[in-house]
């Protein structure tokens, strides 16, 4: 755990750069996180990010790729174009929620 200033806000992040507290998230943080990952956010990205934030708020857990694709109505191929190399993981980081994980 470390503290980091992202988009002029001091937040706690874990070793892999994910927000420790999803409530710290702001849209500016999302833009800064996306930039770090080399992604420029379009409206389509935002649709996915909002779905992931809502899903986390409702379920207390980050969605998997299939849940994002079905729930946000974005085909999986497109998810890979929007967030290359591991969309579930990358969008979680940008949306300020934990990385999707197994039970152990």
């Amino acid at each position: 755990m470390a503290t980091k200033v992202i988009a002029n806000k001091e937040v706690e992040v874990n070793d892999e750069g994910y927000l420790v507290n999803p409530d710290d998230w702001t849209e500016d943080i999302a833009r800064a996180m996306a930039e770090e990952l080399g992604i420029e956010l379009t409206d389509r990205h935002w649709e996915v990010i909002r779905f992931v934030r809502n899903y986390y708020k409702e379920h207390g857990k980050s969605p998997t790729m299939h849940q994002i694709s079905k729930g946000a109505g974005v085909p999986t191929k497109e998810l890979f174009k929007l967030f290359p190399k591991g969309p579930a993981k990358k969008v979680a980081r940008i949306a300020g929620v934990p990385k999707p994980e197994g039970c152990i």
């Binding site: 998997t64 790729m65 579930a88 990385k99 999707p100 994980e101 197994g102 152990i104």
Partner: peptide, 9 residues
């Protein structure tokens, strides 16, 4: 596996 590893916790 789509997960980052066999163990994620």
């Amino acid at each position: 596996t789509p997960l980052p590893g066999a163990f994620t916790k």
